[in-house]
Design a protein around this nucleic acid. Structure first.
Lengths: 234, 234
DNA sequence: ATAAAAAGATGAAATAATGCATGTTTGTTG
DNA sequence: CAACAAACATGCATTATTTCATCTTTTTAT
């Protein structure tokens, strides 16, 4: 067994965004405490980073990679709440709601991150209310994002929902008009709330109409404005 | 004009649940400050209590009545996020996210409530971290509720979604198997994410099948288990 | 009290979405 | 490298949902 202090670091904490932000609010001694109770880990594609139903005793600061927030319902069907790329704090809603995770987080490509002990974080945050408020901003930010996702599901047809998914992936995850999906068609369908076939049909229709080109996992958006129109009116 | 201190009280603060809970965490002097910066108000059916897009400078503790959380999208369509009855703290997500309201709250029947000044609440909460944590529980509780709503919209057909709406209203709002709706069919459709006609069709089908009886605004559930089955498999 | 407007109800036609059958491609494993 | 499984693709029949037209009832305003 490798003792934590002897375990080789995957990356240097000094360039970690979480450290940089935290240290605007807490002193280095406090951050040291936080760091000592944290563990760096690698996650392979498909691995669970947080598990729905499990005890929420830590958060994860995602240093590298892309993850999906997955909700498994009573019928065994999956719903993807959102897709997020690093850097990002995963499970932040659990800071204040000690209990069990209400969703899972899975790596959709190889990831690196750091497990942060919630009791320790809480202890430090309670002594530094500015820091606490900063953390709270993250929680409500996530709530806000999921609300917009909500609108898409409730009011748009599959056309519009898939346009929304493509727009979201392009602008917020891959940050390019041309990208290679790390998600399967099935996962896209779990994100858009429709059948797998419908995703495939819709994407190939978009392809035929010259809005984008699809070749396996590679997507290239040709007409972003048209996609926005479909999102709005579809 | 009636000066605030001369304005007749609609109800006595000493029996207010918000006071009772708050005073478990803060002292009476602090609560006095909170009370002095608050205003009791009556809201008629249909009136806005919080307005989407407006500045979020206060929360509302709902003392009496039922409200809907309404989201208006860019196309002017409404989506009802949830329906809540008193007692309940409205807009709690805004405590920590100062900015504009991301949804509106409307009275669906005559309501009474108390506007609570956010800056004052925040000031006091920061000095009493137990109180702060209690408030945070409310925020994450609301997030959790909306997630389950999400699943219903994403994975169920109209049958199941309407069963969900009826179950929710029966168990969480009216707390009886027989109740008189304070919502129109249009509002039900905005809650279930479908067309108004579909709500009417589905309800009358449920009626024909003996699951419940509908007579205008009066609904009586006869076979709750069957409704749960439809929710699960529909 | 009456007219006008809004809400509720119903059925039928048009559109959208799913589920199935079938075939192809891609990736994995012995 | 062959065999198998998983993912992707396509068309079609079935089912679900919306939209529209029409009518009745309830509510609101004058």
């Amino acid at each position: 067994m490798i003792y934590p202090e002897k375990r080789p670091k995957l990356y240097n904490c000094d360039t970690c965004l979480f450290k940089i932000i935290s240290c605007q609010y807490i002193n280095s001694e406090e951050f040291k405490k936080l760091q000592d109770s944290s563990i760096q880990l690698r996650f392979k594609k498909g691995e669970a980073i947080l598990k729905q139903g499990a005890n929420a005793s830590y958060l994860v600061f995602l240093q590298k990679g892309i993850v999906k927030f997955n909700l498994e319902d009573e019928m065994g069907k999956n719903l993807i709440l959102t897709i997020t790329k690093s850097p990002s704090l995963l499970g932040s809603a659990n800071i204040f709601y000690e209990g069990i995770n209400i969703f899972s987080v899975y790596a959709v490509e190889d990831c690196e991150g750091c497990l942060i002990d919630i009791p320790m974080l809480k202890q430090i945050a309670l002594l530094n209310t500015d820091f606490l408020m900063k953390l709270l901003e993250l929680v409500s930010g996530m709530f806000k994002t999921s609300v917009f996702n909500f609108i898409s599901l409730a009011h748009k047809q599959v056309n519009g929902r898939i346009a929304d998914v493509i727009i979201y992936l392009s602008t917020s995850v891959y940050q390019s008009l041309s990208f290679t999906l790390s998600l399967s068609r099935k996962e896209l369908s779990e994100f858009a709330g429709c059948s797998t076939e419908n995703v495939i049909h819709t994407l190939s229709r978009f392809h035929k109409e010259g809005i984008l080109s699809v070749e396996g996992k590679k997507i290239e958006i040709h007409d972003f404005e048209r996609l926005q129109k479909i999102s709005k009116f579809g």
